[in-house]
């Protein structure tokens, strides 16, 4: 075999192997960032959530599993946040209006979970809801009870929190939908309450 032919053969193999690798590394050229990969994976295979102990903003202790049997919209926040969490807080207040009926019927609940439990005690969590003119129904805030629960929580939901270098945090802010079986089924962008409301209505009708 001439060296030209060998080179050609090897190059064909390299291109095929490289294409396959790139295809696998990007979920079939559909997800180029970690966040889009997370969303794709959740939509394709709903993720069962583990038992998680939380302290609600009324001081009581709850388990994430207590919400089974109804739909749950979850977002992750820290009350000191001046940017993304304010968007999320506004979203939840809007969703209270847009999804008033299922919320009133107890088919749906809104839950904001703090990933800064050392700072965000129940009183601060209540103040956080009030800041966004909480309509007073169907929305509660909570914090994980200890560092281990926080780690389980961020792992289960795929939440990434990094320090912003100015005492605050940057995180992949989003609104997540948990179905009545306690599985994470969908993820939405922050700042688009209308889209979330529409999608949740669809899910409720299914």
């Amino acid at each position: 075999m001439s060296s030209l032919l060998r080179t050609l053969l090897l190059d064909l193999f390299i291109v095929a192997a490289g294409g396959a690798t790139l295809h696998a590394a990007s979920d079939g050229l559909r997800a180029f960032t970690t966040e889009s990969a997370r969303r794709l994976a959740i939509r394709e295979a709903p993720r069962a959530l583990p038992a998680l102990r939380l302290q609600a903003d009324d001081g009581s202790f709850i388990d994430l599993r207590d919400y089974r049997g109804r739909w749950l919209l979850v977002d992750f926040i820290y009350t000191r946040c001046q940017s993304y969490c304010s968007v999320l807080g506004g979203d939840f207040a809007q969703l209270q209006d847009r999804l008033a009926q299922p919320l009133a019927q107890g088919r749906l609940h809104l839950l904001s979970i703090s990933f800064d439990p050392q700072h965000d005690d129940p009183a601060r969590l209540v103040a956080y809801r009030r800041r966004f003119a909480d309509r007073g129904h169907g929305w509660s805030a909570a914090r994980p009870v200890d560092a281990a629960e926080l780690a389980t929580l961020t792992q289960a939901f795929g939440i990434k929190v990094i320090a912003d270098g100015q005492g605050g945090y940057v995180h992949n802010a989003s609104i997540m939908l948990v179905d009545p079986q306690g599985r994470l089924v969908d993820v939405f962008d922050a700042g688009a309450a209308g889209v979330v409301a529409g999608a949740v209505q669809q899910w409720l009708l299914r």
């Binding site: 490289g18 690798t21 990969a37």
Partner: peptide, 17 residues
């Protein structure tokens, strides 16, 4: 072949993920 292998192997490292 070497250039192709190097290029193809470098490609995934251009993806943020």
């Amino acid at each position: 072949s070497g250039l192709l292998l190097a290029s193809v192997a470098a490609l995934p490292w251009m993806l943020p993920r």
